[in-house]
Design a protein around this nucleic acid. Sequence first.
DNA 1: CTAAAAAGGGCAGTATAATGCACCAACAAC
DNA 2: GTTGTTGGTGCATTATACTGCCCTTTTTAG
Lengths: 69, 69
Amino acid sequence: MHQQLGEVVKERRSSLHLTQEDLADMAGVAVRTLKAIEVGKGNPSLSTLQKLAEVLGMEIRLEIKKLNK
Amino acid sequence: MHQQLGEVVKERRSSLHLTQEDLADMAGVAVRTLKAIEVGKGNPSLSTLQKLAEVLGMEIRLEIKKLNK
DNA sequence: CTAAAAAGGGCAGTATAATGCACCAACAAC
DNA sequence: GTTGTTGGTGCATTATACTGCCCTTTTTAG
């Protein structure tokens, strides 16, 4: 269910040539926590996601769902 | 910091003519929790946000930030 | 191949989100 | 006025996210 967001984080992090440790340190979250998020385990809080998003140059958005499938 | 998302929830809920109790029941989250989210207090988990988003016909997205401002 | 770097995971302690309950405020009726 | 509806809050308990420590697996560099 959360794999999707985790994979987005992972791909974005890779494209920026950052290791999990790099990103975790820069975002101020534990490496252990980032690892769990990237593999789709756990249920991160909004603040944790936003800390990561900030470093990744991304943002969390709540949008009306596109209606298709 | 989280007011933004809370306000999105609140506005979308209103536009669907749902009370906080309606939405909370439909989404399977406690009314107490929804209230906190809408006024920007607390730090909801991804699963809580997704339950609400589902009922609201919305989705959580992690996107590359538009560079402006 | 070996060695190092990076990623993944188990576990236990701490911090905090989620919840129920009880209560108050604002407003609408009327 | 009272009554009902809706939204906001404090508090205590329960559930769980976050963390550090340690270890294993996988990938990368040489």
